[in-house]
């Protein structure tokens, strides 16, 4: 079953076109990954999906419904949840308040207690710091908080934009462990990563993006074995 079906998406900034007809599919319960180098348009693609920047052309179908024109917050209400690049936690709010903000939508609010239990079981360290100001957490903890906050929104699909960006190798591995755990819990995820090796290792299906287009796709294993990917991204 297809959770998210993006068809021929075109978008950009001002006059500058960045996405030249991108199509991907995300299957329910699977982890789908988009890899690509800096500037290939990955983040722009996610922003267009979320409605942070306008869609010029193409369609976004979510659970069979056309959501192309919906505003960002309405998409969140439907269960399309993104953890943005750079985390964007609320620094002057406590950890708990950040989590509460995650459960802002009506849908998520009703299930806040369950969500909190889940989040604290995944990230016991956050539970210890529940009253601490989020801005005072370490980089790794902030990333965990960002993921936890995303989970509080009860996502039908969780979109992660470069979760390992700026993290030390040890923390990067920790984050990927978490993603793997979530996958095992059955969370549908769309991951955008530059860390090709780690992401291909855990992903069900992957796309390679370059210059605003999908240039290659396949299962994680297929892509890992592909010469192009090995040459361009794995440096082998």
């Amino acid at each position: 079953m297809i959770t998210l079906d993006v068809q021929n998406l075109e978008s950009g900034y001002g006059e500058v076109k960045v996405l030249w007809g991108v199509s991907i599919k995300v299957k329910k319960g699977e982890l789908t990954t988009i890899i690509g180098s800096n500037g290939s348009g990955k983040t722009t693609f996610l922003k267009a999906i979320m409605g942070i920047i306008p869609v010029w052309n193409g369609k976004i179908i979510f659970n069979g419904e056309d959501v192309t024109k919906l505003s960002t917050h309405s998409k969140v209400e439907k269960g399309i949840v993104m953890i943005p690049e750079g985390r964007l936690i609320f620094p002057e709010m406590s950890v708990l308040e950040n989590l509460e903000m995650g459960a802002y939508t009506k849908r998520a609010m009703d299930r806040m207690q369950d969500s909190l239990d889940l989040v604290f079981s995944l990230f016991p360290r956050l539970k210890e710091r529940i009253q601490q100001k989020a801005g005072t957490l370490s980089g790794g903890e902030q990333q965990m908080l960002a993921v936890a906050r995303g989970l509080m929104s009860v996502p039908e699909i969780l979109i992660l934009d470069e979760p390992s960006l700026g993290l030390a190798p040890k923390l990067t591995i920790e984050i990927f462990e978490t993603i793997k755990k979530l996958k095992n819990e059955g969370v549908t995820m769309l991951l955008v990563e530059q860390n090709v090796h780690l992401s291909l290792a855990i992903t069900d299906y992957a796309y390679v993006m370059a210059e605003g287009k999908i240039v290659l796709e396949g299962t994680g294993e297929e892509l890992e074995r592909s010469d192009e990917v090995r040459k361009a991204y794995l440096g082998i």
């Binding site: 993104m82 609320f90 002057e92 709010m93 308040e97």
Partner: peptide, 23 residues
């Protein structure tokens, strides 16, 4: 809840919108 949303918007509008806040 509304007050917290206002504070969230003041800290980061995009993030707040991504939480489902009608910014």
């Amino acid at each position: 809840r509304l007050g917290k949303a206002i504070r969230a918007v003041s800290m980061n509008r995009v993030a707040a919108e991504l939480m489902g806040v009608n910014t």
